[in-house]
Write a protein that binds this DNA or RNA. Structure first.
Length: 118
DNA sequence: CGCCTGACTGAGG
DNA sequence: CCCTCAGCCAGGC
């Protein structure tokens, strides 16, 4: 499962999200070359290796719903964990969501393609 | 093959 | 901003 090639593509894309920015499950899936598989993106983030991959961490907490909401139920342990990590990142979590206008990641396609090939 | 379950989405009301 | 619903797709049984 954690050696699923599709998972690895998704994790690599997530590693490109800069600190202080957030992306949606669907956006990550698209960039990983897996359009229409937002749910898969969410699922595999639950299997992120604790020590990251290629020696780098996988910032799973920077991935949210397209609406800006965290995917976990408000108040759950997972929710609180993600919220604090986002705050550490300098991202303000208002209620159950984050402002996409303010923190949304708008990557340069050329850059993404280059980085993913390396 | 059917049926159900998700860290999902977009459109509607 | 809330909720509902149809679509979505991978997995498990």
């Amino acid at each position: 499962m954690s050696n699923n090639p599709q998972y690895e593509k998704i994790w690599k894309v997530v590693q490109l999200i800069p600190q202080g920015k957030v992306a949606s499950y669907g956006q990550v899936a698209d960039l990983a070359g897996l359009p229409g598989r937002a749910r898969l993106a969410g699922k595999c983030l639950g299997y992120v290796p604790k020590d990251g991959i290629n020696g780098k961490p996988v910032p799973w907490f920077r991935v949210l719903r397209s609406s800006g909401q965290l995917a976990f139920p408000l108040g759950s342990d997972s929710f609180e964990r993600q919220r604090s990590l986002l705050m550490d990142d300098g991202i303000f979590v208002k209620g159950k969501s984050v402002s996409i206008k303010q923190y949304g990641w708008k990557p340069d396609l050329g850059e993404i393609l280059f980085l993913l090939d390396n």
